[in-house]
Design a protein around this nucleic acid. Structure first.
Length: 613
DNA sequence: ATTAGGG
DNA sequence: CCCTAAT
């Protein structure tokens, strides 16, 4: 293979340095060595002390870190990440919980997982009245009570969570507290309460080792600083969260329909920052993987949930027939991304498509009693303790995804969206992230949302980022944008707050985006010209317009390409890369590494680059 | 902000 | 892809 020699570097006038920057191989190695071998007793002490300090300072808000954990960190510093569980704020774990359609699926969340099952609406009143957007449907339900005469009327005790805003977003940039809207006129507050409890319960159910602190919700502000104060901990925390999220989203959900609540997708702020920065310094585009025009308006449909509106006073009766009426049934929350120039008609169609996809994916109703999901469908109501005399303060109904994840075509997770891709113009449903329920519990000022004007439509160019930011769990910040969503009867459900968070969300792994062949080709070509070690230039040369490929990504990709090229074809995985390309990779790698060697040797001998110049 | 490397 | 040390 002939390695392409220095060529004309085009407009940029790049000169391939005869002496490429010395890749101080020693640099990395040194650091690595240090990391592993130089941990001194001081490190341990410092670690412990620091951890304890942090713990102490935030003990009231973040019960997560404890002395034991600190010790653990100290002992296994290298695996601190794994230990971070304790630091996982309930908020994080919650967010994770609510994803329904795993990756690629739609995460809808019945923010108000309550259905108002009303028995002739005689007893119930407020519950559905406010939010019912859809037609009222009468449903006859037979409820065999296991031969027991226990009445079902207690079902009513369920929740009236309607007051809850579809999106728990704080509009106050100063507070990182997710809000639960309290509707003054309706006692929606308990909704938050109930959900917070659910969170806790779920935590327990899932053995989230020690990560059960849903109650810290009451004080987000105080709890956030904890992470801000210690970047290391924060990162570990983020990492932990990410992993938990990943596991939950992909694992849990596929098996048993998970709650249709929200999908906790967070975004790596750091990355965002980086990418944004790169965006700024964009230079003339050389490649065209990404049409830069595909920006769109992000719209969020309202979440769905219902409340049991009625109850069946069958107590003591032998009549097992229960007449229930679901007064309100809306689809779960979802995000839709659609070009600004799309027509209203297309918007409607898009919404319809998304809704359809959700429905087609299969939905089923889940029942939560005391925050715990009742999985066994064969249980009688009595066995499930859904009967008179039991603690029925909170029975929630949720929409659960019947099918596995990928069941919602065209729906993607926000982070994953490639706005530049060929399909960029296709409207996509997006996952909406919500704040942890537990957070909702904390009293917050509902006014914020109420004040929001229902006709604001976010359409600025930064919408993409905004959306991402919105989905970030850290939704602490921000301004909200309210997007009107088709809502016949107006009222709250129609208003979806979109939060724009300035603060980067911590820890959200980017979605995997395998390099396409054209991208690989572009990379190879660029490296052939520029060499290894000049990733920023490579980025500018071949991926300047591709936001999601950072120079680090390119470097990593090159690394994998080199590796791929050096192993047998049988061992290769993923989309096969043409051997020809791989050959070029090896050739370029060999050439440039040689160049670097020369530079190094030149330096070492103090000869400058005489040998190669 | 970049680069190099380990994970 | 992520995380980090060293530049």
């Amino acid at each position: 293979m002939v390695v392409r020699k220095r060529l004309d570097y085009g407009s940029r006038g790049h000169q391939v340095p005869a002496m490429p920057r010395v890749p101080s191989s020693a640099r990395g190695k040194r650091s690595a060595r240090r990391k592993k071998d130089e941990m001194s007793p001081f490190d341990l002490l410092a670690t412990v002390a620091g951890t304890l300090l942090v713990d102490h300072e935030n003990s009231s808000n973040a019960p997560g870190i404890n002395a034991a954990a600190a010790l653990t960190y100290a002992r296994k510093r290298k695996s601190v990440k794994a230990e971070k569980c304790d630091d996982v704020p309930p908020l994080k774990s919650m967010a994770v919980e609510n994803c329904i359609a795993g990756s690629g699926g739609v995460c809808a969340s019945p923010r108000q997982p309550n259905i108002c099952l009303a028995e002739n609406s005689s007893t119930r009143n407020e519950c559905g009245s406010s939010r019912s957007l859809e037609a009222t449907n009468q449903v006859q339900v037979q409820r065999p009570l296991d031969g027991d005469t226990t009445a079902l009327y207690s079902l009513v005790s369920s929740v009236d969570l309607d007051g809850r805003p579809p999106a728990l977003v704080s509009s106050d940039s100063s507070s990182g507290v997710p809000l639960c809207i309290h509707d003054k006129d309706r006692n929606t507050s308990h909704l938050c309460h109930a959900e917070a409890r659910h969170a806790a319960d779920r935590d327990d159910d899932e053995n989230s080792s020690g990560c059960t602190h849903p109650c810290t919700a009451g004080n987000n502000k105080s709890y956030m600083p904890q992470y801000a104060g210690n970047s290391r901990i924060r990162k570990m925390f983020a990492s932990k969260i990410r992993k938990a999220a990943r596991n939950k989203m992909c694992g849990e959900m596929s098996n048993k329909g998970s709650k249709l609540n929200l999908c906790g997708k967070k975004i790596s702020t750091t990355r965002q920052r980086v990418q944004r920065a790169m965006f700024k310094r964009q230079k003339p585009v050389r490649r065209h993987f990404t049409p830069s025009s595909a920006k769109g308006i992000l719209t969020e449909a309202s979440g769905a949930s219902f409340s049991v509106e009625g109850q069946n006073p069958l107590c003591g009766s032998e009549d097992y027939n229960v007449k229930l009426r679901i007064k309100s049934f809306t689809i779960p929350e979802l995000f839709i991304e659609i070009p600004e120039n799309a027509t209203v008609g297309s918007l409607k169609r898009t919404v319809m498509d998304v809704v359809t996809s959700i429905i087609e994916s299969g939905l089923r109703v889940g029942v939560l009693l005391q925050g715990k999901s009742i999985q066994d469908d064969n249980k009688t109501l009595r066995q499930a303790r859904i009967c008179h005399g039991e603690n029925l303060e909170n029975i929630d109904f949720t929409l659960e995804c019947e099918a596995g994840q990928n069941s919602s075509p065209g729906v993607r997770i926000p982070e994953e969206m490639d706005f530049h891709g060929a399909d960029a113009m296709k409207p996509l449903a997006m996952v909406k992230c919500e704040e942890p329920f537990s957070e909702a519990k904390a009293g917050y000022n509902s006014q914020q949302r109420v004040q929001a004007s229902p006709h604001r439509v976010q359409s600025e160019h930064g919408s993409v980022h905004s959306l991402f930011e919105t989905t970030a769990h850290e939704a602490s910040a921000s301004s909200q944008a309210i997007v009107p969503v088709a809502s016949p009867s107006s009222e709250a459900l129609a208003i979806v707050p979109v939060c724009k968070s300035k603060r980067p969300a911590i820890g959200q792994r980017r979605i995997r985006r395998p390099f396409s062949l054209p991208e690989v080709e572009a990379l190879v070509e660029a490296v052939e010209q520029l060499g290894t070690g000049r990733w920023r230039d490579v980025k500018m040369l071949a991926f300047d317009n591709t936001d999601h490929r950072t120079y680090v990504d390119l470097k990593d990709k090159w690394k994998t390409l080199v590796h791929t090229a050096s192993i047998s074809p049988q061992q290769r995985r993923g989309e096969p890369v043409p051997q020809g390309l791989l050959d070029r990779v090896l050739a370029a790698q060999a050439y440039w590494s040689q160049q670097q060697q020369q530079v190094i040797s030149g330096k070492a001998s103090g000869q400058g680059c005489s040998s190669s110049c």
